[in-house]
């Protein structure tokens, strides 16, 4: 198991968990291998891993590692 920090919370995930798995779990939407939403709508989220952007095309290929810090962000009211 890998212990990671996801949006400020500590979580454990099995080896081989990818960014795509986490995005799908958090948003409750199924993803295509391209990182687009399978429902055809725009997903509207982005991911930073250890302060680096992970482009959506790389989500499925990016396995999370022990002690990674991940941020999954979306648009909220503001400004």
């Amino acid at each position: 198991m890998n212990t990671i920090n996801l949006n400020g919370a500590t979580e454990s995930h099995p080896e081989g968990t990818t960014v795509a798995h986490l995005v799908a779990a958090v948003t409750g939407r199924e993803l295509l291998p391209t990182g687009q939403a399978a429902d055809g709508g725009r997903l509207g989220v982005a991911v930073a891993r250890n302060q680096e952007i992970v482009p959506r095309s790389q989500w499925a290929a990016t396995a999370v590692e022990h002690q990674d810090a991940l941020e999954i962000v979306a648009a909220v009211q503001g400004g």
Partner: peptide, 25 residues
């Protein structure tokens, strides 16, 4: 219309997941 970028949250006050983005689209 402007939006802010914050941690994904289902809380409606924070945008309700991606509902704010959907509303604008």
């Amino acid at each position: 219309t402007t939006v802010a970028m914050r941690r994904y949250s289902v809380d409606e006050a924070a945008g309700g997941g991606t509902n704010l983005f959907k509303l604008l689209l």
